[in-house]
Design a protein around this nucleic acid. Structure first.
Lengths: 204, 204
DNA sequence: AAACTATGTTACTCAAAAGTAGAGAGCGGA
DNA sequence: TCCGCTCTCTACTTTTGAGTAACATAGTTT
């Protein structure tokens, strides 16, 4: 395959395609940033546009409307949360801890915070349904890890359903208070969280 | 003191005062309900008024504006959270657990959810400052209980600051997902949460 | 060169919801 | 009986921000 020896200022068909895709992603990233920082309602599209040095109508070239942007942000965030990789080996508890670590890392991103902080009441019925489905899958994933841990004796829990719910909820709170107070938001925070969830407060 | 033998249809000066206070409280309760259920921005004052079978302008007779209502809701919720009583005796861990139980119970009320779910970015700078102060006091209270537990050996934690933050965050999440999914929102939920926080997932 | 496509812009419209003006009803006191 | 106070209403104004219309410009294609 012949590779271009010099950088051409003219773009090929496919280059233009990807350029558009890149711009769309940039819009999405900007939206995620503003939404997660200011909340969906308080965030105006003028702000989003300003971040990108463009004007509001341009956004409509890439997204149908504000809600479509939000949905894309939330969906992307949830996809990241679901795909948060953990260890494949080790006992149930170790695998769960590894997954939760990945989960926490995602929550510290703009998309993760969008997925977690923004109420799905903002979305249309159709979008909400999709969001619920992915959230359900994440919940099932955690619950399944908990159940596996119970089975191999590495986890003590009487109710995997509530436990999964509590774990997700606790980690989600990382994204909640984070932006306001002066919190040590580095790795240590998530680590302490997970340590607390794994070992509890009572001394062993 | 002479007590009225028959119920008079006319109200005394003080009775009218308290009646007004009661109405103000009713407005606040309605606002807390709508705010916590739909979120501050999505909630309209027409809705709040409708709940009370009155019209919007009447609300303005009891509160300066929408933000004042929100502030009163949040402040009341935070006051409840701070006053959530725990046991006075027992070791540090027992006292902390008792306090957290009270905390969780408050979060299941409209005011508690307002205090916890609504971003203080909604508030004016002045109100936000007051909110931060109370939040700081709650945080200090939890941290102090954790520290006491560490001192008497009933709690294992390397970092009281982060631990207090994580505890509050975890419990706050009770109020987050609660309204959406079909969750067993009874006593069991909070109980499982606290059990998880106290004992962790790892078997003992 | 003409027409078409992609990407933006300026300058609007439109809707929703906060907030206000001012009238009116009912009660209590002079 | 009239005045004034409390409380609530109807009928506005105002503001904010989403969404749109219409035009501009540059590159691309025919």
């Amino acid at each position: 395959m012949a590779k271009a020896a010099i950088a051409s200022p003219w773009k090929s068909e496919t280059e233009r395609k990807t350029e558009r895709a890149l711009k769309r992603e940039a819009v999405l990233a900007a939206a995620a940033h503003v939404f997660s920082e200011r909340g969906y309602h308080r965030a105006s599209l003028d702000e989003v546009a300003q971040v990108l040095n463009i004007t509001k109508p341009t956004l409509y070239y890439y997204f149908k409307n504000k809600e479509a942007m939000l949905f894309a942000c939330v969906q992307h965030g949830l996809d990241m949360l679901e795909a948060a990789g953990g260890a494949e080996d080790g006992n149930g508890r170790a695998q769960l801890a590894a997954y939760l670590e990945g989960y926490a890392a995602v929550i510290e991103t703009d998309f993760g915070r969008c997925a977690v902080r923004i109420s799905d009441a903002e979305l249309s019925e159709a979008s909400r349904k999709k969001v619920r489905r992915i959230k359900g899958e994440i919940d099932r994933k955690i619950r399944q890890l908990v159940t596996a841990g119970i089975a191999d004796g590495s986890i003590a829990s009487s109710d995997p359903k509530i436990t999964a719910f509590a774990l997700a909820g606790a980690l989600n709170s990382i994204g909640q208070w984070h932006p306001q107070a002066g919190v040590p938001a580095d790795k240590k925070l998530a680590g302490e969280y997970i340590n607390l969830l794994m070992n509890g407060l009572a001394p062993r």
